[in-house]
Design a protein around this nucleic acid. Sequence first.
DNA 1: AAAAGGAACAACCGCACAAGA
DNA 2: TTCTTGTGCGGTTGTTCCTTT
Length: 311
Amino acid sequence: MGRPPCCDKVGIKKGPWTPEEDIILVSYIQEHGPGNWRSVPTNTGLLRCSKSCRLRWTNYLRPGIKRGNFTPHEEGMIIHLQALLGNKWAAIASYLPQRTDNDIKNYWNTHLKKKIKKLQTALDPHKASDSTTFQLVSKNYGEKRSLDIINNASALTLNQSSTYASSTENISRLLEGWMRSSPKSTTLKRDQENNDINLDNNDISGIGTAVAATSLQCYAAKAEQESCDFISHEEFESLLSIENLSSVAWEKSSDSNPSGYQADFTDERLHFMSERKHRLENQPPVSFIEKWLLDEAAGQVEEMMELSPIF
DNA sequence: AAAAGGAACAACCGCACAAGA
DNA sequence: TTCTTGTGCGGTTGTTCCTTT
């Protein structure tokens, strides 16, 4: 006996999200922050269940998510952590702040499993089990680091949990991408754009998450060129607060349409979107923070590189 | 050029758990 | 204490894209 479904399934849209839906969701979250997912479909008019909205945000739209190819360093981290923790994707993801558990899980299932099997077969055709993977990796990786990982796990997890990073550029790019996308534009295109966004931003969310920077986190950060920073959470929040990012009152448009928002865009909404876009583009750039963080982290990153013989 | 098969990944489903009423 | 709600998590499925024939 599980819980009842999060929403009744009648009239609920399933399948891939459209750019329009993404925009609506992002706009709403910009305004209200993530959370209270049950109210999201009601307030936005999205024909999605709350859970779907949350997942979409968590796994795809949330700023600071890095998409695309995993670096060899990340691969190594995943392999090692998987051997240590098993299929605890969320736990593993906490060491790779830019990656979602879903992403890691997918990557494991589609790439790493095969890779490891191949490697094991090559090394020892008779033994091909997960435990040998661990031994193989761990041997190179070093016992001490393994212990560090475990010791730091709780601190990191705590640290991650309160993170909500907003990225002006991310949202703005998303809007731009949607604005200029032809009807034929696909998820792939969005992927590409998100990729660009994240490359540009180099993950601002890291600022928030790295307050209690541990050695492992620096290590993880290395893979991403992410920052092991020394900015306080408060500072971060004030720099990139939701208030700073929010613009046109969303309620306005939804209030003026008591019958509920429909999925198709009205002129009013398009106007709302373009106004938002304009405002977002005029937000102060955050690149100086990125630069500062990258400079700050550069030294540590190099150190970590030295310490990781197998990756 | 078209079809088939496989790979990759986004999204869904069901369950568990914590918090609050 | 019990029930409801919100959220997290891991497994699985479905769709799209890519490669091969």
